[in-house]
C-alpha cells in the first residue's frame, strides 16, 4: 500500500495544533516547579489541585455553570424543536426570512449585540441575575437548535411516516414513533452541542452576569487575569475539559458516527 504523505502531514499538523497546547496546559496543572530553560518540569504535584478544589467559589461556579447549561438547553429544546419541526414541514408566509434571521445573531460582531442587549436588560433589572444569563445564552443556542433539527426533520423519509399512518397511527403517534426516533440521533447531537456551547459561553455570561453570576469560564478568566500563578488557570482548564469529554463519550455511544455530518448535511 502506498504511504499517504498528505494524510500524514495533515494528521501531524492537526495534532500539533490541537494536542500540543492541551498537553502544555495539562502538564502545567500537575506542575509545582517548572523553570526556564527546562523542557520537563522539575517538580510534579497536586498542590494546586488541592488549593483550587478547596476554594468555595470554584464549587459554586461549577454548580452554577451546570445549572445554567441544563436550564438553557432544556428551554432551548422546548422552544426550538417545535419551531424546527414547523420550519421543516410547514410552509407559511415569511418562512425563509425567519429561518435565515437565526443567522443574524452570528453575522455581526457578538460583543456589539451583547452591549445592546445589556442596555435593555439594565432597564429590565436582569443584569447580574440568573435568568438574565439564561436569556442571553438562550440566544446563542438558537442557531444550532433550529438549523440542525430542521435538517434532521427534513431528512426523515415521508414515506416512512405515511406507512405508519397506513397501519393505523394518527399524526401524533407517527411523530412520536417514527419521526422523532428517526431524527433523534441528529437532534441529540444538537442538544449536546448547545449544552457544551452554553457551558463554555463566556462573553454573555460575563457581560450580563457580572458581578453576581460567576460561571466556570468567567472564574477561569479572572483567575488567569488576576493571579500571577499559571497553575490555577491550568487546573481550571483541565477541570473544564471534563464535561465536554464526558459529553463526547456519551455522544459517541448514543449517536454513532455520521449523525453530526447528517445533521449539517441535511
Amino acid at each position: 500500500m502506498p504511504i499517504d504523505w498528505t494524510g500524514i502531514a495533515f494528521t501531524a499538523l492537526l495534532s500539533a495544533a490541537i494536542i500540543l497546547p492541551m498537553l502544555v496546559v495539562a502538564t502545567w496543572a500537575f506542575t509545582e516547579v517548572w523553570r526556564y530553560p527546562n523542557v520537563v518540569p522539575q517538580q510534579f504535584g497536586l498542590r494546586f489541585w488541592n488549593q483550587t478544589l478547596t476554594r468555595p467559589d470554584v464549587w459554586a461556579a461549577l454548580t452554577l455553570s451546570l445549572q445554567l447549561s441544563t436550564v438553557v438547553t432544556l428551554l432551548s429544546a422546548a422552544i426550538c424543536l417545535p419551531a424546527a419541526y414547523a420550519f421543516a414541514r410547514l410552509s407559511f408566509p415569511g418562512r425563509n426570512v425567519l429561518f435565515f434571521s437565526f443567522l443574524a445573531g452570528h453575522a455581526f460582531p457578538k460583543f456589539g449585540l451583547l452591549i445592546a442587549i445589556a442596555a435593555i436588560f439594565l432597564q429590565l433589572n436582569l443584569i447580574g441575575t440568573f435568568w438574565g444569563v439564561v436569556l442571553i445564552q438562550l440566544v446563542g443556542t438558537l442557531l444550532f437548535m433550529i438549523w440542525i433539527p430542521v435538517a434532521a426533520f427534513q431528512s426523515v423519509d415521508r414515506r416512512m411516516e405515511e406507512a405508519a399512518r397506513d397501519v393505523g397511527a394518527g399524526p401524533l403517534r407517527v411523530f412520536w414513533s417514527v419521526t422523532l426516533p428517526q431524527a433523534g440521533p441528529t437532534i441529540a447531537a444538537a442538544v449536546l452541542l448547545s449544552f457544551v456551547g452554553t457551558f463554555y459561553e463566556t462573553e454573555g455570561a460575563w457581560l450580563i452576569g457580572a458581578p453576581g453570576i460567576r460561571t466556570m469560564p468567567v472564574l477561569m478568566i479572572s483567575f488567569i487575569n488576576n493571579q500571577m500563578v499559571i497553575q490555577y488557570g491550568a487546573v481550571l482548564s483541565v477541570m473544564l475539559w471534563v464535561p465536554s469529554f464526558i459529553a463526547l463519550m456519551f455522544a459517541r455511544r448514543v449517536i454513532g458516527g455520521g449523525a453530526f455530518a447528517r445533521g449539517f448535511g441535511g
Binding site: 416512512m160 406507512a163 397506513d166 397501519v167 393505523g168 394518527g170 417514527v178 426516533p181
Partner: peptide
C-alpha cells in the same frame, strides 16, 4: 377518511420500513 381510518394496506416503492 384519513389513511389510518381506512381498511387499506399500502406497499411503497421505497419499502418505507422503519429502520429504527
Amino acid at each position: 377518511l384519513p389513511p389510518e381510518k381506512r381498511p387499506t394496506g399500502m406497499v411503497f416503492q421505497s419499502h418505507a420500513l422503519w429502520t429504527h
